[in-house]
């Protein structure tokens, strides 16, 4: 009953949430900062992109603005933590919850902005399939990130998550790099939100629900399946993990076979994820 169009949908959503996974990978893994800003910055991306689109401006401009606004949110969380010494988890929670008001303000007090009449990145050239646009987009982002992480600056970012004492000794400005890392991370997450709203043709204040969970699940699923050291494989595995996670949800939605109700969905998704982890462990051991 899983059909080709559902597979394509999982791919599309997987690629969009792949950006979220990349952002989460940057914060939780690369610079080792438990950043909870993402539920807010995802919606911020959707909100800021949609007001740009409503003003009939170019979709690429909308994506740029979404990235910048997300980056500002991330920089805010990092600054609260590094400059005001507010604990990392709390900084993220504070910014995410403040973003709720900011997002409503950006959206002009409306919880939902329709984009049905706007030119989005997906209907700019209707002849190009959405999947192709997203694949190219993701490919470019991975190339840029992979390049960055293998530069002196990127190496400094990677060192943050491992040994801050040595990082300090070799003259790395930890505050500045944490701000940079979280800005990049939330910029990507915000881009994800901007793409989702354009794909769905509306921006919704509720679309941030579960961003963190799906991003983390994608990162860990990817790490489990492709445990390699190379930065390139790690980045790609975030995307693969995100696509797989969407597949799992797509599968779990077919719960009518088991005569279950919609509200059983989360339970089924959880059980399927656990199964994947167990199978993977087993095959690796023997």
């Amino acid at each position: 009953m899983i059909t080709s169009s559902e597979l394509i949908l999982s791919l599309v959503l997987g690629l969009i949430y792949g950006l979220v996974a990349l952002g989460i990978y940057l914060s939780f893994r690369i610079i080792d900062f438990p950043d909870l800003t993402c539920d807010g910055s995802f919606v911020l991306g959707a909100a800021s992109a949609s007001i740009v689109l409503q003003a009939d401006l170019h979709p690429l401009l909308a994506l740029t603005i979404a990235f910048i606004s997300g980056a500002l949110a991330g920089a805010m969380t990092a600054s609260l933590n590094r400059l005001l010494k507010i604990p990392a988890l709390l900084s993220g929670i504070l910014v995410a919850s403040m973003l709720y008001s900011v997002n409503l303000e950006v959206m002009g007090g409306l919880p939902n902005i329709p984009l049905i009449d706007s030119t989005t990145i997906f209907n700019l050239h209707p002849s190009i399939p959405i999947l192709l646009i997203l694949s190219i987009f993701t490919f470019v982002i991975i190339c840029l990130l992979g390049y960055l992480l293998n530069t002196d600056l990127g190496l400094a970012l990677r060192s943050l998550g491992q040994n801050q004492q040595l990082a300090k000794h070799v003259g790395i400005n930890i505050t500045l790099l944490t701000i940079l890392g979280l800005a990049l991370s939330n910029g990507l997450i915000s881009l994800g939100g901007a793409l989702l709203s354009q794909y769905q043709n509306f921006a919704d204040i509720g679309s941030g629900i579960g961003t963190l969970i799906s991003g983390l699940a994608a990162v860990m699923l990817g790490e489990q399946l492709l445990p390699f050291r190379s930065v390139w494989i790690k980045l790609s595995s975030c995307i693969i993990g995100a696509v797989l996670y969407r597949f799992v949800i797509g599968l779990a939605l077919h719960n009518e076979i088991l005569h279950l109700e919609t509200y059983h969905l989360n339970l089924i998704v959880g059980l399927m994820m656990i199964t994947i982890f167990i199978i993977n462990r087993r095959t690796r051991r023997c």
Partner: peptide, 13 residues
């Protein structure tokens, strides 16, 4: 360690 005290830019490592 090579970049101790120097600017870290976008040059590949």
């Amino acid at each position: 360690a090579l970049k101790r005290g120097a600017k870290r830019g976008f040059k590949p490592i």
